[in-house]
Design a protein around this nucleic acid. Sequence first.
RNA 1: GGCGCCGUGGCCAAGUGGUAAGGCGGCAGACUGCAAAUCUGCUAUUCGUCGGUUCGAUUCCGACCGGCGCCUCCA
Length: 473
Amino acid sequence: MADFRLYNTMTRRVEPFAPADGKTVRMYTCGPTVYNPAHLGNFRTFLFEDLMRRVFALRGWTVRQVMNLTDVDDKIIKRAQEQGKSITEVTEPVVEIFHRDREFLRIQRAEEYPKATAFIPEMIALVETLVARGVAYQADDGSVYFAIGKFPAYGKLSRLDTREVKSGARVLQDDYSKENAQDFALWKSAKAEDEATGAAWDSPWGRGRPGWHLECSAMAMQLLGETLDVHCGGIDLVFPHHEDEIAQSEAATTKTFSRVWSHGAFLLTDGAKMAKRVGNVFTVAGLREAGISAAAVRHFVFNTHYRKELNLSDQALDASTEAVRRVGDFARRLRSPATLELGGTPGLAHGAEAAVLRVEEALFDDLNAPEALAALFDFIRMANAELDRKGGDREAVERARAAFDRIDRVLDIVPEEVRGDTELVRWVEERIAARREARMRRDFAASDRIRDELAGRGVVLEDAGGETRWRLS
RNA sequence: GGCGCCGUGGCCAAGUGGUAAGGCGGCAGACUGCAAAUCUGCUAUUCGUCGGUUCGAUUCCGACCGGCGCCUCCA
């Protein structure tokens, strides 16, 4: 089988990749902070991770993916306080929206979606270990900090040793007191608003709540073991989030926390990073209102390599809508009973299987989805041409179908209306048969009436060399 | 200021030290009762600019110009 390569942020190189046990990829993906519906920038990352898990599966590995839901943090507490709610009341509806959006975009369900608030004991245990090992300390205010000075490898992911803190930048401004400006909070002592919103728990250091980085370390190690195969997230998480995760986890276990670190590039809007704080945010809900299909979004995202910035634009989205329509038309043609009847050619079958190999080679080489799409479109053009020849080879059609399905199981870019039309089909095909009769009689008035009738239900007909295809407009 | 990424045809976007994938759009043709779809051909002698290395660079090095990101619990 083809080898598999993945870019590793730790080494800044594309390297051979395989799960440690050779069978199951243990994959941790940083999920959303659920105080507001995730925006498309967040979803670009989740889509990249969806692609990754599907490519792992294509390669033959089992995937065990964990995505955390951060349901306790400053912004959540602030919102809860403003609305006079508990943090749970704030986060629960947002979690629901997240899954709805996730499903709309056809992002496969991860094996686990742990919530930070469900792992408080594990987090406390981790902090206790760190304190016992002397790399964490409790400050005057009761908060517990990680002492980065005690962890020599600190900065290895983000290459901190080669960076400098901006001169004159505010470094030491924090609500808490700590020994070193860059020490980060593992456990934050409770404040009034934490208590008021249900964001405080008992601990050996008094009432408090977990720091952000802590949850990922605790949940990842609890659910996947002390060494992960791959840890993913947006590029902005490299520092400090992932750097801090490494520090806490490796200081506690002395083992490598993740064998590979993989980060997706940003989605931009108008040339700027899409972010709530910038105010240029687009959501899945907005997309749906605009009538953009999930298939089009997936095409749009996969048409650019995951490590390259991608600018959201109506033009690009429209181009993807058209591209995906072509894919859908082809899918319908392949699946049509008439196509099987007319048959294919040996060239169709061979070309289809060559396309699968090309797609796999591209995807196994650091998830090169743009190249995989190119292979798919070459396949579609070749197959349409071969099918036009009506070669009579039914097996060739079946092999082409299997090849297409194998490719689309990863990319999943067939428009919804092509996937799901079932109840319509019988009626449409009956009408098409009636129209065929009319056309045989050269009664084109009747023929056009039927076409109008179908158009009234959104069905567009296409007469192509003896067969009539249809699709939804 | 430190670290880093990017700049390929009208738009989106792969890619390689040896002479430019794919999608969208456009033009022409085939097919067709009409329409659409589909197919065929054409649409970058050129890969931000200027130098350098090389037999040869879009691909390596340097400078410059332009855009972006991280250094602030932001995917």
